[in-house]
Amino acid sequence: MINLIKTRSNKSHFITKVTGDLRKNVFDNIFDQFEILWIERDPRVVVSSYIKQQWFYKDKPLEYKKLSKKDKIEFYSSYYMRVFNNSKSVKRKLVFYEDLCDNPEKFMRNLLKDFGLDFSEYHASQVKNRQIRKIGWSHYKSKYTNDEIKLINKLLQEPLTYYKYT
């Protein structure tokens, strides 16, 4: 299937986006060799996005409405921490969303170089002057009380420190 996709797209490599635990459940069983690019982001922003997007509650809006903000912070921080702890054992190339937003061309040039791929004029034309909307912690911070900020910082202290977001 991958060879068919590469042939039809006239590409020498195959890239796809995966979220969740598909790597363990599917990729390990299909591919002998693959590389993982892990795009990390400020954990507080990730948790805030989970809350905003109502992860796991799309089909249960009334149940979601009953949760307090504290409950949501605790639930989604716990989920984030499971993903964070599981990610430690994954062999991956770790990059940061904020770096992509700050300088897309430099980010992509370095990324392709790290994977042994050429950064062509086509690539340059695709990322040149491209503005990627950077939504950081300052955007979400105003949506929390001081106590909620302390809670989210406390619950996410390990990844915040690990990824140097503090």
Rank of each mutant, 00 (worst) to 15 (best):
S89W: 08
H13A: 13
D147L: 08
F107M: 00
V83E: 11
G20Q: 02
Y165F: 13
K17M: 05
E40S: 14
H13F: 15
L37W: 04
S49A: 10
L111F: 08
A124I: 09
S48I: 04
Y165D: 00
D147G: 09
S89V: 15
E148Y: 12
K17V: 07
K93M: 10
W55P: 01
F115V: 02
I15M: 11
T145K: 07
E121P: 05
I5H: 09
S125E: 06
D32L: 03
T161L: 13
H123F: 03
K150A: 13
F96N: 00
I36M: 07
N103P: 07
K143R: 14
V127G: 03
K128L: 10
M81N: 08
E35D: 14
R92E: 10
V18K: 09
I51N: 03
R130A: 13
L22T: 09
W137T: 00
L94P: 00
Q157R: 15
D21A: 10
I51H: 07
S125R: 10
K11C: 02
I135W: 08
R44Y: 12
M81H: 09
Y97H: 04
K141V: 02
L151T: 02
K143S: 11
M1Y: 14
I2P: 00
L62M: 11
T16M: 14
L151D: 00
F27V: 04
L156I: 06
N110G: 06
F107Q: 05
R8C: 09
I5M: 10
V18D: 01
V83M: 14
Q33F: 15
S77E: 03
W55H: 02
E158A: 02
I30D: 03
Y165G: 05
K24Q: 12
T161M: 11
N146M: 15
V18G: 02
Q54K: 14
R23G: 07
K72W: 03
R82A: 13
F56C: 08
S48D: 00
F84T: 00
F115S: 05
K60R: 15
S87D: 08
F119L: 03
A124Y: 12
S9T: 11
L156M: 08
